[in-house]
Amino acid sequence: MNSAALLEAQGVTLQYKTQQHLVTATYRVDFSVHKSDRFVILGPSGCGKSTLLKAVGGFLKPVEGSITLAGRPISGPGPGRMMVFQEFEQLMPWKTVLGNVAFPMRVARRLPAREARERARAALETVHLAPFADVYPHMLSGGMKMRVAIARALALEPEILLMDEPFAALDALTRRQMQQELFELWKMLGFTMLFVTHSIEEAVTLGSRILLLTAHPGQVRAELNAADLDGVDSSDPRFGKLTRRIHDLLFGAALLAAPADA
């Protein structure tokens, strides 16, 4: 494990302005993601995890610290860091499913139309959506829309896949199925992914390494390994043990006592 990290965040402080306030989302957060990691950022709402992901995506500049991808500092959004959002609106309603998947390849990689379509078809095949290639997004269910978004991102073969609570808007059954499918895709393709969630179960199910953030502003609480739980059912005692541990780290007595001292 002496190889250099793919994505390196060092002392990242993020701030953004609302109408009235300057909000500090994260404070001096460090983490590094290695190739083929399933790196999960987990924290309660208000811990700045989505803002952190947006900064990695290049939509936001850190006020302090640096984020580098393969040694290069991130200067703006780019197709090397494809993002999958929580909202279904990320698909372009005026393009068919195939068009949606092919579009980034045409724009970002400047692939000829036919090649882009072929690759898009192959990507849809891997997420079991080939029969829906010529359908418009509004005719798909939520889970299917999400699969299109994932296929679109993966078809571009990004250096790192960024996922911003992608399954949060899905119903519980679909969510479990999508987590399973995403894991299968990872086993097949071995991409690197940075996944943001507020669900401890989701983090333990999907992650190989989990970064815990505390809230207001987000600060690193712990970084845990979960790779040994790959494919382990949630009824496994190790699953429950890790879940418990994360829960205690995030909401435990030590943390609750801290504000009283201050």
């Binding site: 995506g57 959004p77 993002m83």
Partner: peptide
């Protein structure tokens, strides 16, 4: 235009007139 759609457009590297 939804913010998500804007961001996913900029994500693939679109800017300016395009």
């Amino acid at each position: 235009v939804p913010e998500t759609l804007r961001m996913s457009g900029r994500n693939v590297g679109l800017s300016g007139v395009r």
